[in-house]
């Protein structure tokens, strides 16, 4: 964004960003420090020795995939509809969806519990995927709609002139051009799904169905609280999220959008 005209500007920018990033690093350093204190690597070993340890990662992964798939699909379709298509009462519908952003998770459990129970969904991943997606979509929709607003209408015109119906326009224009924002929301949805705690706790029963957020439970009890191992677990839990984030970085590159038009 900024043009680096001289050596000095480069240094200034580098210093600036380093200073700004420092406050963010301090708690992270403390966290890693604590995770290595006491038993050191033994903490990490203890975490991997928790029964069903790998299952937790698998389960969280499955739930996250489900949530991402549903959120991404519904968000892209919805953003396209709200941003570029004709809807009477568009804002009213939009605000109704936004209203879903306001509920704290805990309020969802009491009404959903008997519902899922009756539908036989209790202790299945759907009981987590559905409400988590429902909580993600308003937020991703809000962001993506804004982003799609920024796609020049001329491109849509061009596609229409070329004979594309709304579906092909969606597939060939909207989806590719939205990649930067799509990457952003996929990362954020992944994190929210991966870190989901209360909904899995309430709706998943068997140990084989538990998710990574249950890991700290094994190192805590009424009269004890082992920070060293919990934080070691947190470091391990964070790894997939960081990997996903780094992996999706290439979608943020400028110019990808423009070059993708056929």
């Amino acid at each position: 964004m900024f043009e680096i005209r001289s050596r000095i500007s480069r240094v200034i920018l580098q210093v600036m960003i380093t200073v700004l990033v420092l406050p963010f690093v301090v708690p992270l350093v403390v966290m890693v420090q604590v995770s290595f204190s006491g038993a050191g690597w033994g903490n990490y070993k203890a975490v991997t020795e928790v029964p069903f340890f790998l299952y937790f990662f698998r389960n969280s992964g499955l739930i996250a995939l489900g949530v991402i798939a549903i959120s991404y699909a519904l968000t892209m379709m919805g953003a396209y509809g709200f941003s570029k298509l004709r809807i009477r009462g568009r804002e009213f519908f939009f605000w109704m969806i936004m209203g879903a952003l306001t509920l704290p998770e805990v309020v969802l459990i009491a009404p959903l519990f008997p519902t899922f129970s009756k539908l036989g969904l209790y202790d299945t991943f759907w009981a987590v995927i559905i409400p988590v997606s429902a909580l993600q979509v308003p937020f991703t929709l809000l962001l993506t709609r804004t982003f799609v607003d920024g796609i020049p209408n001329d491109l849509l015109e061009a596609a229409r002139i070329d004979g594309c119906g709304s579906i092909r326009t969606f597939w060939n224009v909207i989806i590719p051009l939205s990649r930067p924002m799509a990457a952003a929301i996929i990362v954020l949805v992944f994190i929210n799904a991966w870190n989901a705690y209360l909904l899995p706790l309430a709706f998943l029963q068997n140990a084989e169905h538990e998710v990574v957020t249950q890991l700290p439970q094994y190192f805590r009890s009424q009269y004890s609280d082992d920070q060293t191992k919990q934080l070691a677990g947190a470091v391990l839990t964070a790894l997939p999220e960081v990997i996903a984030y780094i992996g999706l970085q290439k979608f943020f590159e400028r110019g990808m959008a423009a070059g993708a038009i056929k």
Partner: peptide, 23 residues
């Protein structure tokens, strides 16, 4: 522009359906 109702329906159904039920 074509109608967008079908496009927004899934998001609407999920969010309003699940969350508003709880509301």
């Amino acid at each position: 522009a074509p109608h967008g109702y079908l496009w927004i329906f899934p998001a609407f159904a999920l969010c309003v359906g699940v969350i508003y039920y709880c509301v």
